[in-house]
């Protein structure tokens, strides 16, 4: 028997979780959309962020500082992927996978050689917790808003503009004297820093860090970005403000988690959740390719 009120009761939790994953999507947006680099590091760096945050809080570090240090740890993970790709000339996807695999061991070390570590909200002062979903939504909203503002500013600077050029047309970027390797490393670091930060938020929300919490993060992040862009860009070819595009990724994350909530409410087997996500993302990814009237855009974006 399905009760509608149960669905509504679960809604705030879904929104809070969706926003946290939406923040993760902001990080992924930098590599996937701006740098045009499919970065699989994120599955590892998300867990790193969760692990670093939890261990620091257990060690007595204030939660906000722990999250910021998690950001730095994520940046380092991105740096490694950037090094593998730009200095050692390893293909983008493989560079990300290598870092991700390496991070699995590193994350276990961070967690004190345990698969998970708990932080009880009764014992520690956390930024957000699932015990208070309204507060959690507010905190996640503040983080999302601040990050969107920072990214909006950053990608409007000379440096940010050079990163956008690198992702769009690296040959053009080189001809304008842009060090594209440096731009890639900066973008990968920033991206994974944000991903780790969101991992730190999720760990606090859930009250524990798990070594595999980031498994499939890239697919969830992609789902958020794609759902957001389908809703906000759609067939509308008019120029959309960059901050709205970023915001749409966060909203995409919320919509994704609400739909997950509905799936759970319908009592569909949760074991099939990843399958459901993969199908959802595949459908959203293919829609723009299959719809008619696409040829013009292909031409316009050539040379990317």
């Amino acid at each position: 028997m399905l009760s509608f009120s149960a669905l509504l009761r679960a809604l705030p939790g879904n929104i809070a979780q969706g926003m946290i994953w939406g923040i993760m999507a902001l990080g992924l947006y930098i590599t996937y959309k701006i740098l045009n680099f499919s970065d699989l590091t994120v599955d590892g760096s998300f867990s790193t962020g969760a692990a670093v945050t939890v261990m620091l809080i257990i060690a007595g570090c204030p939660a906000i500082v722990a999250v910021l240090i998690a950001f730095v740890a994520g940046c380092l993970a991105g740096l490694v992927t950037g090094f593998l790709h730009t200095v050692l000339k390893i293909a983008p996807i493989l560079s990300g996978i290598l870092t991700q695999i390496a991070l699995y061991s590193i994350n276990l070390h961070i967690l004190g050689n345990k698969a998970n570590q708990a932080i009880n909200v009764n014992d520690y002062s956390l930024l957000l917790t699932l015990r208070n979903t309204k507060m959690a939504i507010l905190v996640a909203l503040i983080f999302a808003a601040v990050l969107i503002a920072i990214l909006y500013w950053f990608f409007g600077t000379e440096l940010g503009s050079a990163i956008r050029a690198t992702g769009n047309n690296s040959q053009m970027a080189k001809a304008q004297g842009i060090n594209i390797d440096k731009m890639k490393v900066i973008a990968l670091s920033l991206s994974n820093g944000i991903v780790a930060l969101s991992g730190g938020l999720l760990a606090q929300y859930q009250g524990f860090a798990d070594v595999s919490v980031g498994r499939g993060a890239i697919v969830i992040g992609l789902a958020a970005i794609i759902i957001g862009s389908v809703i906000f860009e759609g067939k509308n070819k008019k120029e959309i403000n960059f901050s709205i595009l970023l915001g749409s990724a966060v909203i995409g994350g919320i919509i994704y988690y609400i739909s997950i909530g509905i799936v759970l409410w319908l009592k569909l087997p949760t074991n099939d959740m990843k399958l459901f996500t993969a199908i959802l993302v595949a459908v959203f990814l293919s829609v723009p390719n299959l719809s008619l009237g696409k040829k013009k855009e292909d031409k316009a974006n050539a040379g990317n």
Binding site: N169, M172, G303
Partner: peptide, 12 residues
Amino acid sequence: FQDPMMGTAAKL
């Protein structure tokens, strides 16, 4: 460049 798409960034 020979290719008109090469010298400019389309999305910018």
